[in-house]
Nucleic acid binder design. Structure first.
Lengths: 292, 292
DNA sequence: TATGTTCATAGATGTGGTCTATGGCTCCTG
DNA sequence: CAGGAGCCATAGACCACATCTATGAACATA
């Protein structure tokens, strides 16, 4: 009485086509196989499902009742198989990424554009948050991958380094006199410094650097976004500590210039985080491939 | 890429229980079988469906999508199997019978009561009509069986004789003088005769009988139902030609008496008609068994 | 460190799904 | 009326593959 579910597939096509021979063709089987399969179904139910006519078969009362269930069931399976093919094909699915606003805007954006153009059926979900928040999202399965500043040390995570970024101090026209000089740290501190307000990796790193030379780094102004860091520096409100790559346009056009220091500032890397030993979704693995 | 549908059953239980081991228990399989089945599904889609944790398995994004389809599909199959069991068990289903009003009332009623009491889940459909109409219904599949007067000759039908019925002439108190006499046909014709109006087998048979003796049988009154035949006779409007078994009560209580004739009237049989070489529905075959 | 989970893997086994060949039964057609 | 072309059913043979046992690896718990 334990029925092989493939029998329902055979039943479905036999009922749908009204012919065992036709069903056999659809299923790439021989007619005796189909005949045998139907017989098996009938035997295991103890119910005759088809009238055998000289010109084919027709559902009995009970067969018609069975068909009303099996038809829907088979259609769902077909839809499921189509959906899986679409997911495999990246015609469907979703990609959930966690990261900071600035990395989305200045680092991921071109990749996202490219990906979206190639796979318009895949929904993009961008979640921004601090690095610890991103890690939590990842562990809770709320995102597929996280894009944050290195270093990350977490045994559950697999982090791969992506491009290197270089933070630096920049100023606008107001401090033009600094353009061709090389400043010491102490000299720099005589100018108003603008830093990112959140507990960002970059802010912590630069604070530590100054600390290690014996200087406390206290910003004149703290702002909540990279855009504001840039904007304030341009308006001459102080010297901003920003990622050089994120102000490439402003450096190019000359609305900002980089302040050279005696001390070399540490570079930082972008890290792509995924869960260790957890398979990536189709979309996510394709996207990670794209980034690397 | 042609997937064995039993794999979906395994997938369903693995997802539902969150454990390959549990799924194996539910399905009466071993854990390696389940493990292998899931692997097969994953391989044929080219998509990982489960995260393997030390404490079981969890659906991936894609696995969850598959599950949303497969769950409904499996539930439908379960419902189908339950339904088939109910049909087999005669807890569900329908029984469609064709026949004449009088046969339903006087012949089938006790069987129907009995059947309905034993199988209250089965819906009864009673279609009344003339014998040719009943035969048409049967051939069109609109009824499962027909109950009519014999003889029936039709190669497509399988007719089994049921009880024998005896038609006879009856009268009420108004004709009490006939109670202890034996009438000849010609004598009978001096009284007003009440016949069934429709082209019934019984009417045709008796007309032919009179014909064969050279008497034309022309009824004084024609009525459309057996009940009226009885009622008119009781009220003394004439002598009714009815089935003896259908007026058993009236004969017993003395409101009608049978008129004895010199000529013996032909008996008639009730026939149960079903389609030849066509399987009966569960309900119908049980009911036919009951009648025989 | 020992024990009990989990799932994965390897290799053996035998059921049962599928095949070919054939027959019986209608219906249609020359 | 014979012959052909459709149906579906049956019989018997075969081999793929679903399932099993045995074992391993990873992790959690006590």
């Amino acid at each position: 009485m334990n029925i092989n579910y493939d029998l329902y597939k055979v039943f479905y096509w036999a009922a749908k086509t009204g012919s065992l021979t036709q069903a056999a063709k659809v299923l790439y089987l021989t007619q005796p196989s189909v005949s045998h399969a139907i017989k098996q179904l009938e035997d295991s139910f103890g119910i005759t499902l088809f009238y055998r006519n000289p010109k084919g078969v027709a559902l009995t009362q009970e067969g018609a009742i069975l068909y009303s269930y099996i038809e829907r069931s088979q259609i769902l399976i077909s839809l499921a198989e189509e959906k899986m093919a679409a997911l495999k094909n990246l015609d469907s699915g979703e990609l959930r990424i966690g990261g900071s606003d600035s990395l989305f805007k200045h680092y991921l954006l071109p990749y996202l554009e490219d990906f979206h153009e190639k796979h318009p059926g895949i929904k993009l979900h961008l979640n921004h948050g601090t690095t610890p928040e991103i890690i939590t999202f990842l562990k809770e399965g709320k995102i597929d991958l996280g894009v944050v500043r290195m270093p990350i040390v977490d045994p559950q995570l697999e982090v791969t380094e992506s491009i290197q970024l270089q933070d630096c101090f920049v100023a606008g026209a107001r401090y033009a006199e600094l353009k061709d000089t090389v400043l010491s740290l102490s000299k720099l501190l005589q100018y108003p410094v603008i830093l990112f307000s959140r507990n960002s990796r970059a802010r912590m790193a630069i604070t530590e650097l100054f600390q290690s030379y014996g200087y406390p780094l206290k910003p004149e102004i703290e702002v909540g976004s990279v855009d504001l860091l840039i904007e304030f520096a341009r308006k001459g409100l102080g010297i901003s500590y920003v990622t050089r790559e994120f102000v490439a346009k402003e450096l190019e056009e000359g609305s900002l210039f980089e302040i050279r220091l005696e001390v070399e500032l540490p570079p930082s890397h972008v890290g792509i985080m995924i869960m260790r030993n957890m398979p990536l979704s189709m979309a996510a693995s394709r996207f990670v491939e794209l980034i690397r």
